Simulated assay, not measured.
Amino acid sequence: MSYLKGIANRINGVEKQSFTQELDINSLVPSQNNFYGIREIEELAESIKESGLMHNLVVRKLDNGKYEIISGERRYRALKSLGYDKVPCQIKEISDLDAEIMLIQANVEQRELLPTEKMEGIRRLRAIYEQKKASGEQLPKGKIRDLIGADMKLSGVQVGRYQKVDKDLIEPFKEKLDKEEITLTQAHTLSSLTKDEQEIIHEEIKDLNAKEHKEEIETLVEGIKQPVKSELDKQIIDEMYPTVSREVKDEDIIYKFKRALKEFEHPRLIISNDYIKGMFYIKQCSMSKDNMLSISIEAYKESYLGIQVKCFDKVDEISIEIDFGKSVNPKILYKISDGVYIWFKRKIGLFNQNN
């Protein structure tokens, strides 16, 4: 091996189980597992023309005699466009799963990835590590999420945020995230809404220029996380989005109530005032736009209650007398009016129901 090749190998981190060789460019094939976008080939070709190839390609030999590109498909395409016949390659002996891990790691190291590309990388790494674990392979100690984080150069928390966005954010917002029209923080906030709620917001902001209307978009999205208390912010939202459903505003009572109905099960109505003390099992309920709650009481076929909902505030654990001195201690309790509460049981399979 020449002195210059030795230097190149040290720069490129050649390991003992690999070696470097010039290969016919036509013997190289892109990996079928490479889901990353192939961008800016012309710019890369110009850079190679001016400065030469700075890093060798990393490949592995296939059973058909071809070499699969693990790292360097953009360089391969740029070199091909420049008419190269031979390409210096680092040849590795590596399994299918480890080759895909290395491909993902290489793209993380060498490129500025789109958020959706990071999501796909996280998704693939999880599948790979779960497959390795199922086959009995000993993985490094720790959570799979942390292994993925190390590969992706992300913290475990960041991996979790990307997974949440990947799972729950609608595609139009993912496109806006890739285009930097919304931030990852905003995308994570939006992903906590239902698909219908996201569609409503997207319909209102889809034609806005993200740079020109950055403040307005931030005000709307931030209002989902916490109540919009500033009168100026409220005015901005009302002026910009007169047709936006009130459901998307976190301070809105209807929105909070409907969210709670989705998160918890078995709602009960508790009335405890100077005139009535009792607990009623709710069979069905609905709320009108004027915050009038209509409740069908279980065990009473034609019994309905109409209650004006004045608030929807979480109440700390308290003891309420509801039946001749007998008290209950509901932990998931929301006050909706003076002396009127909604008591929820937790979801089956997600929460402990002994509340």
Rank of each mutant, 00 (worst) to 15 (best):
residue 156 G to E: 10
residue 197 E to T: 04
residue 141 K to L: 11
residue 94 I to S: 00
residue 192 S to T: 12
residue 164 K to L: 11
residue 115 P to T: 11
residue 115 P to W: 05
residue 159 V to G: 03
residue 117 E to N: 08
residue 195 K to F: 09
residue 102 M to A: 14
residue 144 I to R: 02
residue 94 I to E: 00
residue 200 I to N: 15
residue 169 L to W: 07
residue 103 L to Y: 07
residue 137 E to A: 10
residue 106 A to M: 06
residue 114 L to S: 03
residue 199 E to H: 07
residue 162 Y to C: 05
residue 156 G to C: 04
residue 168 D to H: 12
residue 100 E to V: 15
residue 178 D to C: 10
residue 127 A to P: 02
residue 148 I to A: 01
residue 185 T to A: 15
residue 107 N to Q: 05
residue 98 D to Q: 09
residue 149 G to R: 02
residue 161 R to I: 15
residue 159 V to H: 04
residue 120 E to H: 10
residue 113 L to K: 00
residue 151 D to L: 00
residue 156 G to H: 04
residue 204 E to N: 13
residue 168 D to W: 07
residue 129 Y to V: 08
residue 141 K to H: 04
residue 117 E to Y: 09
residue 108 V to M: 07
residue 129 Y to C: 08
residue 192 S to K: 14
residue 203 E to S: 14
residue 128 I to W: 04
residue 200 I to T: 09
residue 100 E to R: 12
residue 147 L to G: 01
residue 165 V to H: 03
residue 119 M to C: 06
residue 111 R to E: 13
residue 167 K to I: 02
residue 116 T to Y: 01
residue 120 E to P: 00
residue 194 T to S: 15
residue 172 P to T: 01
residue 106 A to L: 06
residue 195 K to H: 10
residue 165 V to C: 03
residue 123 R to N: 13
residue 101 I to R: 15
residue 152 M to S: 02
residue 187 A to Q: 09
residue 116 T to Q: 08
residue 96 D to K: 15
residue 106 A to R: 10
residue 105 Q to N: 10
residue 136 G to D: 15
residue 105 Q to D: 14
residue 177 L to N: 03
residue 166 D to S: 15
residue 188 H to E: 14
residue 166 D to H: 12
residue 104 I to D: 01
residue 139 L to T: 02
residue 189 T to A: 04
residue 167 K to S: 08
residue 113 L to Q: 01
residue 119 M to Y: 10
residue 183 T to I: 09
residue 107 N to E: 01
residue 112 E to T: 11
